[in-house]
């Protein structure tokens, strides 16, 4: 079926299978592979996007049901030449190893800092509890969020 989505400020069209998730539509049909596909069951958060400013797992959103909503993906937060402060902080803190979980963490950290400029460690852990990382052990990720908070709201 043909669907019309508003992604990163642009009107896009795609032909998708009716049961297709937003994640599949983004990656396979719209050329936006930043959101990662790891579990397709809401457990890992690597597919996190913002839909009408709310943090969601795009693997659990039916692509066809996303019509009429504003979708923002990790691609919209920063560009290679101009990283978002959250992305910069992840690089600087060494919070990226294999990098597979990183886009999801970036989007979730962005959503956290938007709502809560100076989160406590407990609040950071709670806000990132829907994102899994198999490499870093989370210490550096939490450090990165603290750095980003300082950068953005100093």
């Amino acid at each position: 079926m043909r669907i019309h989505l508003t992604v990163n400020g642009l009107e896009r069209e795609a032909d998708v299978w009716e049961g297709s998730s937003l994640l599949t539509a983004l990656r396979e049909d719209l050329g936006l592979p930043g959101s990662k596909n790891a579990c397709e069951q809401g457990e890992c958060g690597s597919c996190s996007v913002l839909l009408d400013d709310q943090l969601l797992c795009s693997c659990l959103v039916l692509a066809a049901a996303a019509e009429g909503h504003r979708i923002r993906t990790v691609e919209d937060l920063g560009k290679d030449e101009r990283l978002h402060p959250v992305q910069r902080a992840f690089v600087d803190a060494g919070a990226v190893q294999c990098g597979f979980c990183t886009p999801g963490f970036i989007v979730a950290s962005y959503a956290l800092l938007r709502d809560n400029p100076e989160p406590s460690e407990a609040e950071i852990r709670e806000a990132l509890s829907g994102n899994l990382c198999r490499c870093t052990g989370y210490g550096k990720i939490i450090e990165a969020v603290r750095r980003a908070s300082r950068e953005m709201y100093r």
């Binding site: 693997c59 659990l60 959103v61």
Partner: peptide, 22 residues
């Protein structure tokens, strides 16, 4: 509704609804 149960079933092919009402 939120899809957090139903989309998992669809993603894994455990369910192929003929009709789906959002």
């Amino acid at each position: 509704a939120g899809g957090t149960d139903l989309m998992v079933e669809i993603n894994f092919g455990r369910k192929r609804p003929e009709h789906l009402i959002v």
